[in-house]
Design a protein around this nucleic acid. Structure first.
Lengths: 207, 207
DNA sequence: GTAATTAACTTTACACCGTTAAGTTCAAAA
DNA sequence: TTTTGAACTTAACGGTGTAAAGTTAATTAC
């Protein structure tokens, strides 16, 4: 009994080591630049060993994708204490952008990169708790805003998607380096300032 | 003299054929799935011939990237006739989303994918007319809005970036398949409807 | 008219990639 | 003590982008 436990523990340990190596490499070099072979080298195992723990490369990065959502939910947690839904919506927007700019590689994997979606397409879809949770935080906040008379007449779900889109756009353009058209002077804190404008626009909607 | 012309013409012809093959493959399979070898096979030349006309793979896709901006500017051209800048801003937003949804692969290359930016990083930056033109269309419209009393107190350039971001977010989430959290019922026309909400938000800001 | 040059193009090759199939090793179970 | 089976590796397949070297054929120079 104890012996099977130890083996199981060792298995989990190695899986953890793979994931840690993958995370480190991926955060400093990005998805494309992180190969199964370099991960293997880092943990001093042969490349094929990795396939005993993960179906394929996407499967590894899907695990990191999930990590990313857990981290994002940590950013969101503090905001549940904001009672007013409209204030909470604006706080979520700012936190979301902060998360993206502080964890660009995670953000990329979660919301831009195509690869982890392949893994998500399978059975994982159902048990994708963290993703649903993050979306739910926004979704319920938007619903409460509607209940309080904000955004009158708009479809709750489409509105939720739209709010998400607006902040996603800021993050995605920044992370994928599309801000070079912007003058040098405005490059600094561009994402943050764009976020502030979005929030200010929301404010002015209800003045 | 004529003989050199013919050679030059033939050179251009082949370059055009490479680009056409690349475009066709890329539109039906995307960037990652289009290899130098498949392009070469399509035009019935050896893969290395392509390198006589393009520095590297990014260079080819940078050419398509430019094509995409020309196409986007065509979407924008009709809108120059809209006299009122605020109306024009809203029309640009809708056209932008329409462009993205009608030409997802181009959009991906232009605003999401990392690859053509490598090529753009070099000397090309200066002569990137079409990109500057498209950004300029939005930029001047936003400036006129400010002059007409809209968006009071906001920085013109950061505001331009923010407007761009908002619509980009919609397009990017759609194109990279992040709409699966949305219920089936709202999937259809989601991008268009989100665009309408953004426009409606702009309207309500100034009621 | 013949030889030298040069541009266009191909062959070959390198160093990578993700992934699979076929071993190997060795501890646990029978 | 033999058998089983899990953990792990080696070798290999078919792909990628790209560089170097070799070939061919048309043009130029003499």
């Amino acid at each position: 009994m104890t012996i099977a436990n130890r083996k199981e523990r060792q298995r989990e340990e190695l899986k953890g080591k793979i994931l840690t190596a993958a995370r480190v490499l991926f955060i400093e070099r990005g998805y494309e630049e992180t190969s199964i072979r370099t991960i293997a080298e880092k943990i001093e195992y042969s490349p094929t060993t990795i396939y005993l723990h993960f179906k394929d490369k996407d499967d590894i990065f899907y695990a990191l994708h999930t990590e990313g959502f857990i981290l994002l939910n940590q950013y969101f947690r503090a905001l549940q204490s904001v009672a007013d839904p409209f204030e909470r919506l604006k706080a979520i927007s700012k936190s979301y952008i902060r998360f993206a700019l502080e964890n660009p590689e995670y953000y990329d994997l979660m919301f831009i990169s195509r690869s982890p979606m392949n893994a998500l397409a399978d059975e994982n879809r159902a048990k994708w708790e963290e993703g649903v949770k993050a979306f739910g935080a926004l979704s319920t906040t938007v619903a409460e805003c509607l209940a309080n008379g904000y955004f009158k007449g708009m479809d709750p779900e489409v509105l939720t998607f739209t709010c998400w889109s607006m902040v996603h756009g800021v993050c995605a353009l920044e992370i994928r380096g599309r801000c070079q058209v912007i003058s040098e002077a405005n490059q600094k804190d561009l994402g943050i300032r764009a976020g502030e404008i979005i929030v200010e626009m929301m404010n002015r909607m209800h003045k």
